[in-house]
Design a protein around this nucleic acid. Structure first.
Lengths: 294, 294
DNA sequence: CGTCATTACGGAATGCGTAATGATA
DNA sequence: TATCATTACGCATTCCGTAATGACG
């Protein structure tokens, strides 16, 4: 295989069409340059330069090889730069998981802040429930998650992004909308309930069950996505407990009522990541970001 | 700058994720491979492999650099092949000039034969009068011409492609079309004549003047292109002497009549090229072609 | 103590620069 | 004879392989 020095030598001679000047440009003497070209031609297996003792000229093969040589040199020059950019986290790919609800509120401002810090980093977004994010972070398929507790603090580092209160979602024109005060447990004891899945949306399920006296006989649906919940409420299938950010969904026919004791901002959203940070882009992000979105 | 050996070493290690096996694959021992990678990393300016004494793993920068390294190796492998193909004339570019009349007859079959011999050669076609072809061949802007004599035999080599007879082009319904015999000089002594330019189409001009008694007072137009001539005949501006292949033009309103003594096939078309053949594709063509198109 | 990457060291090969040669106008 | 590419030769550097070292399970 030829060497980059040989390529550089050939390019210089091809451009100068003069061994002496080319050698000068390369800060060397003619003889080694002459030998470089000879070796290169032998390796390539074709005459690249036609040299009459008076003038130097590119052959057709030499013209074609010159293009390839320039491409090679350009690629070789750029490759380390790319690698260093990625190593420093200024380039690369950041894969972020987020829950449907966080997509409505925090995701936009967060992405804006990230792209300010890492302008050349490609960002891969996936809507995933917390459990899927956790396993993605463990296998390395994900770099950062926007998810809800609980998660293993030994494996994951995290930052609380915000807390919000739970609301009661009811159909428009439902009697409870006339209440004009916080909804109490006895107010919905006879209402059909749309509940969270205790497995798929364990966080919400536990939160609701812990905070409110739920009659399980009233549960008419068990779902895992907040969007599904609100849609079912709009279809008048029952009432549901949702985080405040569900109000951003903008679904028609649903009203959101405050819950008594619901203003304790119990619903948390965290940015979480594997403590063993492997992606330099994530390392740089964590170094520079202020988790200060309102 | 790094070397191709370093790149090959890095690719092998990145694929095997094991210095020992990679070294084996490269027919060398581990220590120099280890040093190659170290040097490469130093040159690149980023850690490419994370090596724990138990396992080897690519860093993100390493993954990106691996792609670049593969591209470089592939390009470097292909470049000499391309150069050799062009040197042997199996690839490259062949620039051919042709006269308008030859475009109607010989050009098609000739191109078919050429592309059979040089399937990977790009062919550049330009319609040019003989004089333009000659200068193109001299400056190297053209590799091969399809042109008419005379040309300098010391500079150009040539091959007679075919001879054809001259015809008299007359407008439809012209009295001469009733003749039903070869046209003689006295038949057109009073006809308006469309003649060739003595400078731009010297070959035809000389040929006609030498063979036929022309009354220059009858000349109403002097043009250089056969297509122009035939168009003027169709417009009933006069009669003209054209080579037989002009019948292929398919212009409406023109009849072609045989000339007395015109069947001596005096109009020649030659393939001509500079004796100093520089284009390998032309060299290969001349080696393999049978100039045997009917 | 076995595995596997890295450092230590001696020898061969590569490749530079200086000097000589050759070829051409 | 001047110019310019090429060959000749001596020396420094590079880079391999073998051997020794070091770290980790």
């Amino acid at each position: 295989m030829f060497t980059f020095d040989q390529l550089a030598g050939f390019i210089a001679v091809a451009e100068e069409l003069h061994f002496g000047r080319a050698a000068e440009r390369l800060n060397m003497t003619q003889p080694p340059l002459s030998r470089q070209i000879q070796r290169l031609e032998k390796i390539v297996g074709a005459e690249l330069l036609e040299r009459d003792n008076r003038k130097v000229q590119l052959t057709h093969a030499g013209q074609a090889f010159l293009e390839e040589a320039r491409r090679l040199m350009a690629l070789a020059d750029r490759a380390p730069v790319t690698a260093r950019r990625i190593a420093s986290g200024r380039s690369g790919l950041l894969r972020i998981g987020f829950t449907a609800a966080s997509g409505l509120s925090i995701l936009g401002p967060l992405l804006e802040e990230i792209s300010g810090i890492l302008p050349d980093v490609d960002i891969d977004l996936q809507e995933l429930v917390t459990g899927e994010q956790i396993s993605g972070l463990l296998t390395g398929e994900l770099d950062l998650g926007l998810a809800r507790p609980p998660f293993n603090d030994e494996v994951f580092d995290s930052h609380l992004l915000y807390s919000e209160s739970m609301m009661l979602a009811v159909p428009e024109n439902h009697p409870l909308t006339e209440l004009n005060r916080e909804v109490r447990a006895e107010d919905f004891k006879d209402e059909p309930l749309i509940m969270h899945s205790p497995t798929q949306a364990r966080y919400f399920y536990d939160l609701v069950v812990r905070a409110l006296p739920i009659s399980h006989s009233n549960v008419v649906h068990t779902v895992s996505q907040i969007l599904t919940m609100v849609s079912l409420v709009a279809a008048k299938r029952g009432v549901a407990f949702v985080p405040h950010s569900a109000t951003f969904l903008g679904i028609q026919g649903v009203r959101f009522l405050p819950l008594q004791g619901g203003d304790n901002e119990a619903v948390e959203l965290h940015a979480i990541w594997n403590r063993k940070v492997e992606n330099p882009a994530l390392a740089r992000l964590l170094r520079d970001i202020e988790f200060s979105m309102e």
